[in-house]
Amino acid sequence: MSEQRRIELPVLGGVSRRTALKGVGAALGVTAFAVAVSPLRRVAGELTADEYFQKHYKELDEREKEAVLARLQEAAREEAGRNDITVSDDPPIPGVKFAYAINLSVCNGNGACVEACHRENNHDRDTNQSYIRVLELPRGSLGLDGADSTYTHEVPAPDKFYMPVQCFQCDNPPCVKVCPVEATWKEDDGIVVVDYDWCIGCRYCEAACPYHARRFNWKAPRVPAEEVNPDQGYLSNRIRPAGVMEKCHFCLHRTRRGRLPACLEACPTGARIFGNLLDPDSEIRAVLRHKRVFVLKEDLGTEPSFFYFFDR
């Protein structure tokens, strides 16, 4: 490297040839890099500053929250070309803690709940996404070995029983514990929610959940405009952005207004029971009083608010 030959360039007078070549190389490299990452422009343009710098749900004051809801509603209306879409944010009802129970003697695995969830919650149509999976299990065990949710034959099949699984809204939720950015938390009524606008999509919660209750938006959900459920909630069924987690929220946009969850209404066997755990006269308390219930994977200490029982 002893050569110090200089070449005369009109602009870069007195620059060694090697340095000039390096400059060219660097320029080429930078250009190539710019071209390589140019697909990023496809998404960068869609993001506004308001969206990008939106605060965490819990840090929004009333005025800011209203602005966010209005913006989301406007965007949802524009996207679907429908003016009946509302994006609301119902708070938890004081004195209410939700719980769910399923009668496994009655459930026959028909999967109507799976579809009802799919429609109610504006799930991606391409993947038949739903918060519920119905497991077909061999009789003779309560273990999950041999579980299958892809069955398409007539139900109930002989020697099988069926177990719908969705988020159990655990009182000791592993998913909440592991989230590095507090994008998921437990509300006062027991529902574990996700701030879709805060989640960074690391999927640690999905690894942590022992019940396969969490779902990731591997792509932006596609819902035909005419099929969009217009009654939307910020923490529930508004159409999610790509790249974030989502999960069952006990239809909080319905249940926080006193209505039953969509999966319960759809169940043709009446296997589902929902209600307020703090109300001693509620149906869910009657289940706990009169039935012998169990929770899935009790040994993990997750303390689900979701119970299973058998009549016979």
Binding site: L47, Y52, H56, C179, P180, V181, E182, A183, W198, C199, I200, G201, C202, R203, F216, N217, P241, A242, G243, V244, M245
Partner: peptide, 20 residues
């Protein structure tokens, strides 16, 4: 590259985001 929303990395910054 494993993040679904790398654009939101700032949520992970202590004091600026919400660092759990």
């Amino acid at each position: 590259v494993d993040l679904g929303r790398p654009d939101r990395f700032w949520h992970l910054l202590p004091f600026i985001g919400r660092f759990n």
